[in-house]
């Protein structure tokens, strides 16, 4: 009888078998491997069947956890296509994080390379909603703070977005599409964009809103961190035909009302 494998050898071999959940030849590969492992079987279940219990559970758990976060994407693809997609995705991106919630974090980028832009956009939107839900809390910039600001201090005023802000640019109306898919209404994923959206959290609730491309771009500046003077300069470059500071103040009022701006540290 050969010596028992070390714990490391054993775990490396089993890890490979436990990761076979989505593979078409999973059962045959488990059967091939069973004689090389010190795993017991009995009249009820062979060693391969016992290992297979884990293999099946692991795949199902990861698949279902990801599906929970991408409900509309699952509906758009259909169950069979989703099952096959997740098998390929998990093979390309084995779960490497202790938090199962993050198992789907690479899916939007994976879909960008493998599916239509519309499906990738829909998945990006769904992930933005999830990501925003658990983003860091932050103290908000208040209207009182701005009202108390001396006129000479305005140019250097630092503008930063709350950590939960996510900005999206999509080729189709993903907000409508998602709603229809979740409500079971017919929808198509035709390209009619671009659509620009923001996703953010106010207190504990996540919101999303379509915004004009101009505001979308302004928010990109805010997300990177800018000053009021730099924001005005960027607006002026756009030649809106209005006074840049008036446009900036109007944007700020909307963002303050929606709790999009963070207080200075």
């Amino acid at each position: 009888m050969s010596a028992a494998p070390s714990l490391r050898e054993l775990q490396h071999q089993l890890e490979g078998l436990f990761s076979l959940g989505g593979a078409a030849d999973c059962e045959a590969r488990l059967k091939d491997a069973e004689s090389s492992l010190p795993v017991g079987g009995d009249g009820r279940l062979s060693p391969a069947q016992r290992i297979g219990i884990y293999t099946d559970m692991i795949f199902a758990r990861i698949r279902d956890a990801i599906a929970e976060d991408f409900s509309a994407t699952v509906t758009a693809l259909g169950d069979d296509a989703w099952e096959s997609l997740i098998a390929r995705y998990v093979e390309a991106h084995p779960t490497d994080h202790p938090d199962l919630r993050l198992a789907g974090r690479h899916l939007p980028a994976y879909l960008r390379a493998t599916e239509t832009p519309q499906i990738a956009d829909l998945a990006s939107f769904e992930w933005a909603l999830i990501d925003s839900f658990t983003a860091a809390d932050a103290p908000l910039l208040s209207g009182d703070t701005l009202r108390a600001l001396a006129p000479e201090a305005w140019p250097a005023l630092e503008l930063r977005s709350v950590p939960s802000l996510r900005l999206l640019c999509a080729t189709s109306p993903i907000d409508q599409t998602r709603r229809k898919l979740l409500d079971g209404e017919p929808t198509d994923l035709e390209t009619v964009g671009p659509f620009t959206l923001r996703v953010w959290r106010r207190e504990l609730r996540v919101f999303h809103k379509r915004v004009p491309p101009f505001e979308h771009e302004a928010l990109q500046h805010i997300a990177r961190g800018t000053t009021f003077a730099d924001l005005c300069e960027w607006i002026a470059e756009g030649d809106t035909g209005e006074d840049a500071s008036e446009v900036a103040v109007r944007l700020l009022q909307g963002w303050l009302a929606d709790e999009l701006l963070m207080a200075a540290p």
Binding site: R8, E15, F18, I58, I62, A65, P94, T95, H97, L100
Partner: peptide
């Protein structure tokens, strides 16, 4: 719960 830096979530 995993090996080779993969987490199998079981």
């Amino acid at each position: 719960t995993g090996a080779k830096h993969h987490n199998l979530h079981d």
